[in-house]
Design a protein around this nucleic acid. Structure first.
Length: 309
DNA sequence: CGCTTTTGACCGGCGC
DNA sequence: GCGCCGGTCAAAAGCG
């Protein structure tokens, strides 16, 4: 995990050494400045600044501890994965079903994520002709354990055409075709993880040749199409490739988002965008602006009254 | 009435 | 060749 995301809310309009600059903040401070003398404003803002800085330090410390814990766990996991893959490579796994069972064991070992296995699947040569380039993506969706349905709300519409109980998992596997079929060749399989029944494993075969119906109704249409409000979880790496932990129970998230490679989330551009979005979200929140203005006003009034006394 | 879901039958690939 | 298994089909049932 990259710790370079700086939750620096040091938005002092005097020094402008902050990473978050929005017009909304500037307008607020100008308005406040008109109402009070520059001296009073400076005193109140300095006090508020100190408080926010203290909060900022505390949050940064929490983040640092979380990152350290994550890095420790991640290095341990990678160590285990490398040991296991070293063993498994020594065993010839040319037979399709053995590959699949190996695949399933990996699935159970990497809870949470999207795995693009189009380039790593060993049995691609056994797929039917014309389907060689079919993209296979696996998604892990954590759901309510009491929810026994095999429905994955990924934005697309699906038609169920079969259900089977497979040998290696007592939970039935459901087969879906895209409702745009036969023009859209995409299929998906959904099955609960044998290890953790609260996790749905959705395997997507092929790529949609039409837009995501839910995308047109997206509440946030950001410049690069990523709806951060619906990506509440962390990124992780599996032995098979990039994976992203998702909570698809959140409304409005499509697999199109989920299939974005992890590198996008690691890029400085993404971090900058994330910070800007956080600032923008806060600044667009009327209650936040009101509370901030009220707090500053009260502090300034309090200070001016105490000076008079 | 039309669409979707359910479910048993069927098919083809694979291992023995 | 036979049995197992995953995947698909299609008729019946369910639902709005």
């Amino acid at each position: 995990m990259d710790t370079s995301i700086n939750f620096d809310l040091n938005f002092n309009p005097m020094t402008r050494n902050n990473g978050i600059k929005t017009k909304e903040f500037e307008i607020d401070f100008i308005d406040i400045g008109r109402r009070f003398s520059s001296q009073q404003e400076a005193g109140a803002l300095a006090a508020e600044l100190n408080r926010v800085n203290a909060e900022n330090k505390r949050l940064n410390e929490m983040l640092r501890v979380m990152c350290e814990n994550y890095n420790t766990l991640h290095s341990q996991m990678m160590e285990l994965v490398s040991k296991n893959s070293g063993k498994s490579r020594n065993v010839a796994l040319s037979k399709k079903r053995k590959c699949e069972s190996e695949d399933n064991s990996n699935t159970n070992g990497t809870l949470g994520g999207i795995v693009d296995s189009s380039s790593s699947e060993g049995d691609s040569s056994k797929k039917p002709k014309g389907d060689l380039e079919a993209k296979t993506t696996r998604a892990f969706i954590r759901t309510d354990p009491s929810d026994t349905s095999l429905i994955v709300k990924d934005g697309y519409q699906w038609r169920k055409y079969g259900q089977k109980v497979t040998r290696d998992n007592p939970c039935p596997r459901a087969y879906f075709k895209c409702s745009f079929a036969p023009s859209c060749p995409v299929k998906k399989k959904v099955q609960r993880s044998a290890e953790d029944r609260s996790v749905l494993v959705a395997t997507y075969d092929g790529e949609h040749n039409h837009p995501d119906p839910s995308r047109t109704e997206a509440k946030l249409d950001l410049t690069n199409g990523v709806t951060f409000e619906t990506i509440p979880c962390s990124a992780s790496v599996s032995s098979l490739g990039p994976s992203i932990t998702l909570d698809l129970t959140q409304p409005g998230l499509s697999t199109h988002d989920a299939e974005r490679p992890k590198r996008e989330f690691d890029s400085p551009v993404f971090h900058q965008f994330l910070v800007e979005q956080m600032a923008s979200t806060l600044s667009k929140d009327p209650s936040f602006k009101t509370a901030l203005a009220t707090a500053i006003s009260e502090r300034i009034l309090h200070d001016s009254n105490s000076e008079k006394l």
